[in-house]
Design a protein around this nucleic acid. Structure first.
Lengths: 256, 256
DNA sequence: TTGGGCAAAATGGTCCTACCATTTGCGCCG
DNA sequence: CGGCGCAAATGGTAGGACCATTTTGCCCAA
């Protein structure tokens, strides 16, 4: 508490001033010296603290914003705010990857099946009774929603997403959550295909509910079997719409 | 071929000029209008094509560089070059995530074991005979390297990385390669712990070689068992260095 | 007293201009 | 013929001015 106005930033320099600035700010964030939701000094202030031009500051902030660490607002009370979350903008990286390589849907399905199988095991082993009950409730709500003649596509997508994330959360492993979060954007559009096809819709919904119950009942083999069935259906469904959707958007970047 | 000097970029826009510029360039890259290794116009040229100031151009380029789409060089013949690679800066995202949440190493181990098990199955099923032979050769070279009294840490790290990526490549699924690529940075530092401990070193090397042979012999159960053993050792090794390294760097960002 | 609207201040967004640093390549000189 | 250095191209930085947006609060009117 000796110095209330700790410098926090050193005058930086080395030809790559902007990178230096970015590194210092990032370090301050990761070290916790800048808490989430906290506001950084204004550009004109930092320009003096760093002893550099405003352009360098702006480029550093732009990079950190792109990196997902900052949130920049205009107007008085504006400025750079430290972003709280972490999982964000990962999905964007995967979306970019999918766009550049236009990877076939089956590869995505395959990967997700692998993750889901492990996830089910971990969820059974570590999920609390409440979490398991909640998962079953969600799955049954999902089932009810899909049984309707006119399912609300938005709601279906949301419930499906929540189900997957709930399952990932029960595994008590942040990496799985991270990957799941990243994958959501990329494959949700394919999952929708499953729900759009009436023939698969009911079976898929019932299967989800059965899977949730198997997890709640601590029956790993049954859960694995049901998950396998889910993806078998998804593969079949995708096979049916072979070259039908030649150039579907696949993923939609939302730059909010 | 009607217009040799296709405009390629529209003059744009008010308010969010830099974002607009970034979007146009990104779109041009993803649409293939800008090929990898191709060089964009100089900042001073683009500043005219876009009808904007140079600062806006620079901020856009900075964002795209951070995004992993561009590579910027100085001097004459310098400028912005479209990056060829695909796996881009995913690893950086994960490294950031690990730093922010300081996730325990065991979570990482757990996830990678899950991925590796699937990877081995896919490699057996899809890997060509040449690829399998190559994997065995690499594993044996790795083993030889680790048997030395004074293993070259750099070389060990490189070989370990190449082994993992080779395995991922044999799965013929870009997503697995993508994830593996992402995990390398965050994980390698822990793997090194295994190789630094003499007691585990030889066993680990031999185990890698055995695993490669099991894959080459199309023996999935044996491969699975060996992989399990690898991670059992890694867990034990990590357990031994419990709170010893309280605040180790874990991952080191290299902004080359 | 209270409500609404307007003005001022803070702050990011942009443009401009000049200059510095680095890299490449060409031409000059030995 | 060859090496060395200078000039041009280009990104990197500095500083200043102005615009756009948003918040705050003041002032006037009902």
């Amino acid at each position: 508490m000796t110095t209330a106005t700790e410098p926090l930033f050193f005058p930086a320099k080395a030809g790559r001033a902007s990178e230096d600035v970015a590194l210092q700010i990032e370090a301050a964030i990761l070290a916790g010296r800048l808490a989430p939701e906290e506001r950084l000094p204004s550009e004109r202030e930092m320009q003096q603290q760093f002893g550099t031009g405003r352009g360098a500051i702006r480029e550093a902030l732009r990079a950190l914003k792109q990196k997902g660490l900052l949130d920049i607002r205009k107007g008085v009370k504006g400025g750079a705010y430290v972003r709280k979350v972490g999982m964000i903008n990962i999905g964007e990286s995967l979306a970019l990857f999918l766009k550049q390589h236009d990877v076939e849907p089956l590869a995505l399905v395959e990967f997700r099946e692998s993750v889901d199988q492990t996830l089910a095991l971990l969820a059974i082993a570590r999920g609390s009774a409440e979490a398991k009950a909640s998962l079953v409730a969600m799955a049954e709500e999902f089932e009810a929603c899909l049984r309707q003649d006119e399912p609300d596509a938005d709601r279906v997508g949301h419930l499906d997403r929540d189900l997957n994330l709930a399952l990932a959360g029960m595994a008590a492993n942040p990496i799985f959550e991270w990957v799941m979060q990243a994958l959501q954007r990329g494959f949700s559009s394919h999952d929708y295909a499953l729900y759009d096809t009436p023939r698969y819709r009911e079976r898929t919904a019932a299967n989800w509910a059965d899977t949730a119950r198997a997890i709640a009942d601590n029956d790993p083999m049954r859960a694995a079997s049901l998950i396998g069935y889910h993806y078998a259906m998804l593969r079949a469904c995708l096979a049916e719409r072979t070259v039908n959707t030649v150039n579907s958007p696949l993923v939609s970047p939302d730059d909010s």
